[in-house]
Structure formats: structure tokens, C-alpha cells
């Protein structure tokens, strides 16, 4: 079962990142090994404070979420 969250990437460490949603709530994501994104692509997203859409699943035995894909939202969809 996959879910979707939108927000701004606020912290990046290796393949882990924090997404702050529109309500100001922060969520910890871990990039999945088969994700449609590379860890090296996360830092520029954080630097640009770009709005992204993350498809994710809950992680097993971790308080975190496993990101399956990270998609950059076009400027028109950005708030």
C-alpha cells in the first residue's frame, strides 16, 4: 500500500530526508533502494526548497517512511 505526501525538503542527510508538509508537520523519509531518485539528487532539492511529491510506504521496525519516488512539482502546482 503506497501513500503520497507533498511538501518541501528541509533536511537531507545521505539517503534520508525530512519533508515538511503544508501543515508544518515534518516527516522522516528513507530513500528506497529501488526508488526513482538518487541520494545525490536530494541535496539540490533541499537547497532550492523545491516542492516535491513523495510516494511512500511505512517502514518495518522503523519510525520513518520509505520513499518509493520523489517527483519535483511544476511551479504552477507550487504554493
Amino acid at each position: 500500500m503506497t501513500y503520497v505526501k507533498e511538501g518541501v525538503v528541509t533536511i537531507v542527510q545521505e539517503s534520508r530526508f525530512q519533508l515538511t508538509d503544508d501543515n508544518g508537520v515534518s516527516h522522516l523519509f528513507l530513500l528506497d533502494r529501488n526508488a526513482a531518485a538518487e541520494p545525490a539528487q536530494l541535496a539540490p532539492l533541499q537547497a532550492r526548497q523545491a516542492r516535491v511529491r513523495v510516494t511512500y510506504e511505512p517502514a518495518r521496525n522503523l519510525i520513518g517512511l520509505v520513499a518509493r519516488s520523489v517527483r519535483l512539482l511544476p511551479p504552477s502546482q507550487a504554493r
Partner: peptide
Amino acid sequence: EWNNLPADNI
């Protein structure tokens, strides 16, 4: 906190 690591071994 600094390294953005998730809590494990729940």
C-alpha cells in the same frame, strides 16, 4: 537528530 536517523528496534 543531527543525522536524521530513524528510531529502530521498536
